[in-house]
Amino acid sequence: MATPEEKLAELGLTVPDVVPPVAAYVPAVRSGERVYTSGQLPMRDGALITTGKVGGTVSPEDAYDCARQCALNAIAAIRSMAGDLSQVRIVKVVAFIASTPDFTGQPGVANGASELFAEVFGDAGVHARSAVGVPVLPLDAPVEVEVIAEIGGVG
């Protein structure tokens, strides 16, 4: 069975460096067997991959890609606490989507994160989830994702 890192490599992805905080918080905290991530923005190489509102200047497809990048950044934050990704189970995902008032496709955008977790972790990546439309996010990001993971909950 392939490890999460091997599955990422099959997808042409690697775990990035943990994104540094943009304010007074840490990227993740471990409490017992749980890791709680801070909200992860769609940062790549130190910058947001896009800005704006979904349903406005950001397409649902681009927002899906943003949610996927947020999930990859969450994986980095989780690994910084857990060490070994093969011991990780994704328990809960909350996706915040900065969107226009008439946009109602938040669940499809959040699938960018959810589908990546399932691809990388298999059954241990299937999780409970909320997808919430909001008026604005930090730095004008279109998507922010936070995760609760369990360490040692696989198997």
Results as ranks from 00 to 15, higher is better:
Asp62Gly: 02
Arg34Leu: 14
Ser80Tyr: 07
Glu119Val: 06
Ala71Val: 03
Glu144Gly: 07
Glu146Ile: 14
Arg89Cys: 04
Asp45Ser: 08
Ala74Tyr: 04
Ala9Asn: 11
Cys66Pro: 01
Asp123Met: 11
Pro21Lys: 05
Pro101Met: 03
Asp123Asn: 12
Gln106Met: 10
Glu6Ser: 09
Val15Ala: 01
Tyr36Thr: 13
Pro27Thr: 02
Thr57Met: 11
Phe117Leu: 10
Pro60Tyr: 09
Pro142Phe: 07
Phe103Gly: 00
Met43Thr: 09
Pro101Phe: 01
Val147Ser: 01
Val91Cys: 02
Arg129Met: 14
Ile90Trp: 04
Gly83Gln: 06
Val143Pro: 00
Pro60Asp: 08
Val154Trp: 02
Leu11Gly: 02
Val134Lys: 03
Ala24Glu: 14
Gln40Val: 05
Val154Arg: 05
Val136Gln: 15
Asp123Pro: 05
Glu10Lys: 14
Pro4Tyr: 14
Arg89Lys: 14
Gly125Pro: 00
Val35Arg: 02
Ala67Thr: 06
Gly112Ile: 09
Ala124Gly: 03
Asp62His: 13
Gly108Trp: 10
Ser38Ala: 15
Asn111His: 12
Ala9Cys: 02
Pro42Arg: 08
His127Leu: 10
Leu72Phe: 09
Pro4Val: 08
Lys7His: 14
Ser38Thr: 12
Ala98Phe: 06
Glu61Leu: 13
Cys70Pro: 01
Arg30Met: 08
Ser80Phe: 05
Arg129Lys: 14
Asp123Ala: 15
Val134Cys: 04
Pro16Leu: 02
Ala76Tyr: 04
Ala149Asn: 03
Gly46Met: 01
Val22Leu: 08
Glu115Leu: 13
Ala77Gly: 04
Gly39Leu: 13
Arg89Asp: 03
Val109Ser: 04
Phe96Gln: 15
Ala82Phe: 04
Glu144Asn: 12
Asp17Ala: 11
Gly39Met: 12
Pro138Ile: 08
Pro60Glu: 14
Glu115Thr: 15
Gln87Glu: 12
Arg44Ser: 13
Val58Cys: 02
Lys53Leu: 15
Val91Ala: 10
Ala76Val: 04
Leu137Arg: 06
Leu41Lys: 07
Arg34Tyr: 15
Glu61Tyr: 13
Ala23Lys: 09
Ala76His: 07
Ser114Gln: 15
Met43Asp: 07
Thr57Phe: 06
Ala24Cys: 05
Leu11Tyr: 07
Phe121Trp: 07
Gly55Asn: 01
Lys53Cys: 08
Val126Tyr: 09
Val26His: 02
Ala28Asp: 01
Ala82Pro: 01
Gly52Cys: 00
Ala76Thr: 03
Thr14Gln: 10
Ala9Pro: 00
Asp62Gln: 15
Thr57Val: 12
Ser130Val: 10
Val120Arg: 05
Gly122Ser: 10
Ile90Val: 10
Thr37Gln: 04
Ala24His: 11
Asn73Glu: 04
Gly152Asp: 03
